[in-house]
Structure formats: C-alpha cells, structure tokens
Amino acid sequence: MESQIRSVDVAGVTSAIRDMCIRANCGLAKDMQDRLQEALARETSPVGKSVLTQLEQNLEIAGKEQIPICQDTGMAVVFMEIGQDVHFVGGDLNEAVNEGVRQGYTEGYLRKSVVSDPLLRKNTGDNTPAVLHLSMVPGDKVKITVAPKGFGSENMSRVVMLKPADGEEGVIDAVVQAVKDAGPNACPPMVVGVGIGGTFEKCAEMAKQALTLNTSEHSDLPHIRKLEEEILKRINRTGLGPAGLGGVNTALSVRILTYPTHIAGLPVGINICCHVNRHETVVL
C-alpha cells in the first residue's frame, strides 16, 4: 500500500507552539489541579495546609488574571512526534519551533530565562532556543507537546547508573534520595518523572517525558505501576512536606517510563518538577 505524503506548513507549528507556551504557563491541566486538591484534603500539618491553600489561591489568580503561575516560566522543552508521511513546507522546522517560543514568551508576558552560552551567560532576550526532541512515528500527523521547565527543580534532577544487582530497591532508594537532597529547593510538593533503562541519555529523556504523562493514570505494566505507587508512598514518608516545612505531601505523583537496557546496566533518570508541572499537547 502506498501512502500519501501530507504537506504541513511550518507556520502552523509556530502558531501552535506560541499558544501552548502561553496556555501552559498560566494554567495547569485538570489532573494537576486534582492532585493539589487531594493533597490539601489529606494534609495533616497546619503549615502544610496553609502552603497548599496558598498554592491553590495562586492558581486561581494566575487563571483569572492570565499571568504566569510561577515567575520561572522555564526553558521551553518541545517534544514532536512526526508521522513519517509528513513533509514540512514553508521553512526550517527548527526555526519555526523557536519562532513559536519567541512569540509566545514575548506576547504572553513570560519571563526570558535563557542565556545563549552556558559560560558567557548573555540572555537571548526571547527565551529561545527551545530544547527540541524529535521522533518519527508511522502516519501523517504531527503531535507537539510543549513543556516549559523551571530550573529550581531541574537543578535537583539527576542520572544514576545503578548496577543490575541494585534492582527495584536500588531504584526506590535513588529516587527517594534525590527528593531528600532536593528538599525545599525544588518547591515541594513535587512531581517526579523517572526513566529506567536504555542508556545514559535515554533514561534522562524518558524522565522528562514521564513528567508530561497524566498523573491520574499509572503505567500499563503491573510491576511499574506498583513501583510508581511505592516510590510515591516512600517519598511522602520523608515528612518534608509542602515548601519543605513539614507535612505528608512531599510529592503529588511519580510516573515512570522504561526501555530495554544492557546486560551490565540499570540507568535511572530522575527529573524533578514542582507542582507547576506544565505541559500542553496538540496534534496537527
């Protein structure tokens, strides 16, 4: 069977990314709002309750005034799944993505937090470039996810190369330790994305992608679902609590993605996010 090539104008990519940058920064998805509400209902510490109540008020104000939930509107991480029957027309795809970020961050009154060189550190002034992850899939659609990532929590993320013998307990300990070390710096309650398997870079990318998963769902793999629940329970047993000031809600969700790996290794990527776990998706 021969498939038709579908032409997609990159201008559509630009405008989709522009809109998603703004939308993601001023409001959270329903699942994250639900997680916050559940946390408030379950919190036993008075100071923890007070922090969570203020985070809910904050979300309400951000939505009503259409201002960012957090001043750190992040570096724009963009995942694109491109159907292999798609042909992009109208310009350079990479430039179209960056133009979307440029327009979104400028027109949406979002903060410009990107420097052009990690050592020379001059602000680019428009929050470009994005960090773009491309993958090819069958079909003729283009799925774009924009996930602006703040750095208070990004700085507390890590990759750990465990040994196969470390097993499940090793993974649990590594994630709980990362959360403990992050402490108040990562603005708990956190959302934790974990990538297990693959290689050094693959587990880190999966950890990032795990943050874009719906927190109302769990892994389809029974042992991974169990692991998601177990790690969340152990994290919340630390007592760190909202803002690191004590309480039973240190994390709101743990999601895990896995990939086959080498006989000699057990790579684990741990990407920490705060409750402002922003992501928007469209299909073109």
């Binding site: 922090v51 985070l55 904050n58 104000i61 005034e65 939930i69 957090c70 603005c187 705060c274």
Partner: peptide, 12 residues
C-alpha cells in the same frame, strides 16, 4: 522563605 511556586499570589 517565601512560598516557591506562588508567584502570582505574591505579586499582589
């Protein structure tokens, strides 16, 4: 410490 992630509220 001010509450991290409450930037909209604190702006008031």
């Amino acid at each position: 410490a001010a509450i991290g992630g409450a930037g909209a509220l604190l702006s008031h």
